[in-house]
Every structure is written in C-alpha cells, then in structure tokens.
C-alpha cells in the first residue's frame, strides 16, 4: 500500500517536471513574452509582485474573502441541510434554489450580482453560488445516510434532541463533508478570484490579474497564477490537517494509535 502511494507521488512529480519542461520548450519556440512568457520573466514578475508594498494587503484581503465566504456557505449549508431533513417544506423550498444555482450559467448570476451588490460583496456571492449547492447536498446526503437504527436507539433511550443533533447528526455531517471539504474550498477560492476580476475591489488578486491583463503583462498573469496555486495548496493542507486532526481524536481507536 505504502509503495503504491509513493509510486503515485513519483508520478505526480514527473508530471510536474514534464509540464515545466514543456513550458520552457514552448516559450523558446514561440519566443513571444505576450503569448507565452519564459520561466525567467515569470519569476521576475513574481519578484516584482511580492516586493510591492501592497502585496500582503492584496493577498490578505483575497484570502479573507475566500475564507469568510466559505465559512458562510458552510454554515448556511449545514443549517439548511439539517432543516431540510426535518421539514418537508424547507426541503421542497430548497429543491428549486439548488437546481437554479447548479444549472444556471454562473456568469449570468455574476452579472446580476454586479448590478445588485457592492464590489466587495460580489466575490463572496460568486463563491457562495458555486460551493453552496455542493456543500448543501453533501450535508443532506450525510444526514439521510445516518443509520435509522441508531436514531431509533436514541429515541428508545429518550436521549435529548440537542444531544442527538450534537452527537449523531453533526459527526455524520462532518464525516460526509471531510471527503469534499478541501476540493470545495479550492473551487471557492477560484470563484472568489473570478468575482474579484469582474467586481474590482480595491485590494484583490482578481483586480491585479485584470490590471496585468490590461497592460498585456502576461508574465505578471502567470506570476499571479503561481501565487493562487500556492494559496490553493496552502488551503488544501490546512483542510487535510484539520480533518486528520479531528478524525484522529474522534474516530480512530486507541489500538490503532
């Protein structure tokens, strides 16, 4: 099993090296910084972006927007998921909402958001419309998958409803969410940045991407992409660490530890 995991990592490393080699080769063949910048000019662009005194502000605001938006989406998904389980009315109310959010082209909703909302709120909203349906459906599915026999046991033993929620529902929701949490957070980050590109808040990665595009500074665009990938990876590690930490405390037996 371990060998298999290592082999996977090796393959992934080879793939990354191959992409960089391909990039170097193509940029030499094309020889045009606007169409495909070289690795050197991208690194120079990265240096310039990082040395900008406002870099930390830009980075911080985008990360905060992404985190804040994700926490809002997650909280609403959990509350609505639990309510949908217990109320037929709310469940049926949510069906068209989720269908609308999942099937309407995102750009159409973004355009409406640009008309209705302030430019600081639009990125959060864009992230929300993308990840909320995923999170809500996962929460609902996790609740519906709870073993009815365990719930019946709690009922026979007259366990308080709040305790049932805390001790049965929430852990089941967490188990369901733990499988998709890091990918949902990645999607949220991408969508928040897309929202920033369109709504142009003062401090935002998306705003700066747009500026680089206007000046046809492709190395700058590439440099920002590298920064976004790094943030995405950072989020992924944080989420995986968090999930592992909680799981090891709650779900793994002392024998295995």
């Amino acid at each position: 099993m371990k060998k298999f995991i290592l082999r996977d990592r090796d393959l992934s490393l080879y793939s990354k090296i191959l992409i960089v080699c391909l990039w170097i080769a193509l940029s030499r063949i094309i020889d045009n910084e606007i169409i495909l910048p070289t690795v050197t000019s991208t690194i120079n662009g990265l240096g310039k972006i990082i040395s900008n005194p406002e870099f930390l502000n830009i980075l911080g605001y985008s990360i905060l927007r992404s985190l804040f938006g994700f926490i809002i989406s997650l909280s609403i998904a959990i509350v609505m998921g639990v309510l949908s389980r217990f109320s037929k009315f709310i469940y049926n109310l949510m069906v068209p909402v989720v269908k609308f959010l999942s099937s309407t082209p995102t750009i159409a909703i973004i355009i409406l958001a640009l008309i209705w909302l302030s430019n600081e709120i639009v990125p959060l909203f864009v992230g929300f419309i993308m990840v909320f349906p995923i999170l809500y459906e996962t929460v609902l599915k996790s609740i519906l998958n709870i073993d009815n026999k365990i719930l019946e046991m709690a009922r026979v033993y007259n366990v308080n409803k709040i305790d049932v929620l805390k001790e049965i529902y929430l852990p089941s929701i967490f188990i369901g969410l733990s499988n998709i949490l890091s990918s949902a957070m990645g999607i949220n980050l991408k969508m928040v940045i897309a929202g920033e590109v369109l709504s142009q808040p003062k401090y935002a990665i998306g705003t700066n991407l747009q500026i680089q595009k206007i000046y046809l500074n492709t190395p700058g665009v590439f440099a920002w992409i590298i920064i976004i990938l790094a943030i995405g990876k950072f989020f992924e590690y944080i989420m995986k660490g968090l999930v592992l930490c909680i799981r090891s405390k709650r779900y793994i037996s002392p024998m295995e530890n």
């Binding site: 046991m153 026979v156 366990v159 049965i168």
Partner: peptide, 27 residues
C-alpha cells in the same frame, strides 16, 4: 423510561464504549 436490547448492537461507531454508555445517561 425503558431499556431496549436490540438484535444488532446499535452502538455509535465514532464513540468509544464509555462514550456510547454515557450517551444514553446524558440528562
């Protein structure tokens, strides 16, 4: 109040033996 011994154990998988027993005694 009444107790019920089920055909299946109906223990909560993510709780230890102690926590499973505590669960029905809460309150």
């Amino acid at each position: 109040d009444k107790s019920y011994i089920f055909q299946e154990d109906r223990l909560i998988p993510w709780k230890t033996v102690k926590e499973n027993l505590e669960f029905v005694l809460k309150g």
